[in-house]
């Protein structure tokens, strides 16, 4: 590839043959006059784990927040599980029901117990009976390893436990896709491992995941594809092996040399 002053534009479409669950074409977004996402083409197949990396301010969080309309985009198309994101509130609600999200700051509801945090949406949105919601909640609390914390309030838990509750909360809605927005960035170093372990297990069970993270170990272990973003663009896409052994783009190499 020839060296140019411009950052090359890469498209990050999923391999052919898979079942597309997220399809993004020509996505552009501005915050005021600031062009934060530029001509993003990307898709995710069912069962894929896509890891998005890049320097802070590169737009990677904004990108996944566009997928469930926490951010509104101005140009381009986003289709999740066959539903196209438009201004239609019904479509937005439909997509949000099928996409679970885990935030950097956990965002548990501090005035509700762990159990209430998890069962709120299944009861109010999915219209499950309380008994069914609680049963499913316990199933996922066991899965993330903290069933004994069900009656506590979030403030009584450690950061790692809170993030695991947040994952259980998203999973109990039985989403088709899980979006992770820097899930370990606000955690103390000694508890990052327990959250990553939950995520690795989830990936191995075949959950479709889009993960914004700085945890290169996670990307290497379970990532099917890695997307590198810089300045609002997708710069390079590839398998973890490609990425960590011989990235082609200068920007990618520069970034990786700083964090590895």
């Amino acid at each position: 590839m020839t060296q140019t002053a411009q950052i090359p534009r890469a498209s990050a479409h999923a391999p052919e043959g898979g079942e597309r669950i997220i399809e993004i074409d020509g996505l552009n977004k501005w915050f005021g006059d600031f062009h934060v996402l530029k001509d993003i083409d990307m898709s995710v197949n069912r069962g894929e784990v896509v890891v998005v990396i890049g320097p802070s301010g590169s737009g990677k969080s904004t990108l996944i927040r566009c997928i469930n309309r926490l951010e509104e985009h101005q140009e381009g198309a986003i289709v999740v599980d066959g539903t196209r994101l438009t201004d239609d509130v019904r479509n937005i609600d439909l997509i949000r029901r099928e996409t679970g999200m885990v935030f950097q700051q956990f965002n548990l509801f501090p005035h509700l117990t762990v159990m209430e945090n998890i069962t709120l949406a299944p009861i109010r949105v999915r219209k499950w009976k309380t008994s069914k919601a609680e049963e499913r909640a316990m199933y996922f609390l066991e899965k993330v390893g903290i069933p004994e914390q069900a009656q506590k309030y979030p403030g009584q838990l450690s950061g790692g436990q809170q993030q695991r509750v947040a994952i259980a909360r998203a999973l109990t809605m039985e989403p088709k896709v899980m979006l992770f927005d820097e899930p370990t960035s606000a955690l103390d170093p000694e508890v990052i491992g327990e959250v990553l372990e939950v995520m690795v297990n989830l990936a191995k069970e075949g959950m479709t995941m889009v993960v914004v993270t700085h945890e290169m170990g996670f990307a290497r272990e379970v990532g099917d594809r890695v997307i590198f973003m810089d300045a609002g663009q997708i710069v390079e896409v590839g398998s973890p092996e490609h990425f960590f052994q011989n990235p082609t783009e200068e920007r990618t190499r520069g970034f990786l040399s700083k964090i590895l």
């Binding site: 609600d93 679970g100 700051q105 965002n107 509801f109 709120l120 809605m173």
Partner: peptide, 26 residues
């Protein structure tokens, strides 16, 4: 914090449910 409303919306709660169940009580 704005994250509270975002988390509620991301779970599929409607705007009014988010206000009534999450934001107002806090």
């Amino acid at each position: 914090p704005s994250g509270q409303g975002e988390a509620a919306r991301a779970l599929g709660l409607s705007g009014w449910q988010t206000t009534r169940l999450i934001v107002l009580p806090q």
